[in-house]
Simulated scan of single mutants.
Amino acid sequence: MDEKLWLRNQTWADVKPTGRPFDADAAYDIVAAIPIPIVEQEAAYSRGYPYEEAVTRALVDRFGIWVVGWHHSTHFGGPVEAWCCSSDSVTTVDETPDRVVDSLEEWREWLDELDEKFARLSPAPGASAEDREWAWERAVARLVTLVLDRTSCEAAWYGHCELVLRWYLESNDVEAGRAAEWVGEAIGGRFKSWVEPRLPVIDDVAERIAAHADR
């Protein structure tokens, strides 16, 4: 898939749902018009990728770049349960469009939830460095727990966790590259697939990120 459509390349400004309306019926009409690939069974694992890209491009054209996470499945560390993988989820002309729209609705609900959490967990405008540090530390710990629950701690869940933490910092006016650097350094490879990090590790990550609050 085109790198411009990769979820990890999107900033919070790209995906923030505020001011970006979404109509599930319109989404269904768009998806239903895209042909379902028919191939031999042995090629099932690859058949869905061109379809997923075609769907993503069509939805981006209509609703904006925020839609690109619609197929980020919990099976691969994402927050979407309705979509499994291309080999299982791309099926018939009747089933597949419904599954895509269900997945897109899940993704949008997740973005709405993050938007609400970011606002509630961010320091007040003009807050002191000490208050900012406390707010960031609290926010990071809660967001890690939130992502763990949403992704069921599946394979590569930590990738989405890093993205959510970066988005939180971006929502607090930290430049994307710097936010990614701070998050990466704080986690330091300690988050693993299928392993829920111990509370002291989460607390340490939160403290390390919060230490940048006065910069």
Rank of each mutant, 00 (worst) to 15 (best):
residue 4 K to T: 12
residue 10 Q to C: 13
residue 11 T to A: 15
residue 14 D to A: 07
residue 17 P to M: 11
residue 17 P to F: 04
residue 19 G to M: 09
residue 20 R to I: 05
residue 22 F to D: 07
residue 24 A to W: 08
residue 24 A to V: 06
residue 24 A to P: 02
residue 29 D to L: 11
residue 30 I to C: 08
residue 32 A to Q: 10
residue 34 I to R: 05
residue 35 P to M: 03
residue 45 Y to T: 00
residue 49 Y to E: 01
residue 50 P to E: 01
residue 57 R to N: 04
residue 58 A to D: 05
residue 62 R to H: 15
residue 62 R to Q: 15
residue 62 R to T: 15
residue 65 I to R: 05
residue 67 V to Y: 08
residue 67 V to N: 09
residue 68 V to S: 11
residue 71 H to F: 03
residue 71 H to P: 00
residue 75 H to I: 05
residue 80 V to G: 07
residue 83 W to I: 00
residue 88 D to E: 06
residue 99 R to M: 13
residue 101 V to G: 13
residue 104 L to K: 08
residue 104 L to R: 12
residue 107 W to N: 09
residue 111 L to H: 09
residue 114 L to H: 08
residue 117 K to H: 11
residue 118 F to Q: 07
residue 119 A to E: 15
residue 122 S to H: 07
residue 124 A to C: 00
residue 124 A to F: 01
residue 125 P to T: 04
residue 126 G to F: 02
residue 126 G to T: 02
residue 128 S to K: 02
residue 128 S to T: 15
residue 128 S to E: 06
residue 130 E to W: 02
residue 130 E to D: 12
residue 131 D to I: 01
residue 133 E to W: 00
residue 141 A to W: 03
residue 145 T to P: 00
residue 145 T to C: 12
residue 146 L to H: 14
residue 146 L to F: 13
residue 148 L to N: 13
residue 148 L to V: 09
residue 151 T to S: 10
residue 153 C to Y: 01
residue 154 E to R: 09
residue 156 A to G: 00
residue 156 A to V: 08
residue 157 W to E: 09
residue 159 G to K: 10
residue 160 H to Y: 07
residue 160 H to L: 14
residue 163 L to R: 11
residue 165 L to D: 06
residue 168 Y to A: 09
residue 169 L to R: 11
residue 181 E to D: 14
residue 182 W to D: 06
residue 190 R to T: 05
residue 192 K to A: 14
residue 193 S to M: 08
residue 194 W to T: 09
residue 196 E to A: 15
residue 201 V to Q: 10
residue 203 D to V: 08
residue 209 I to S: 08
residue 211 A to R: 07
residue 213 A to E: 11
residue 214 D to E: 13
residue 214 D to T: 08
residue 215 R to W: 10
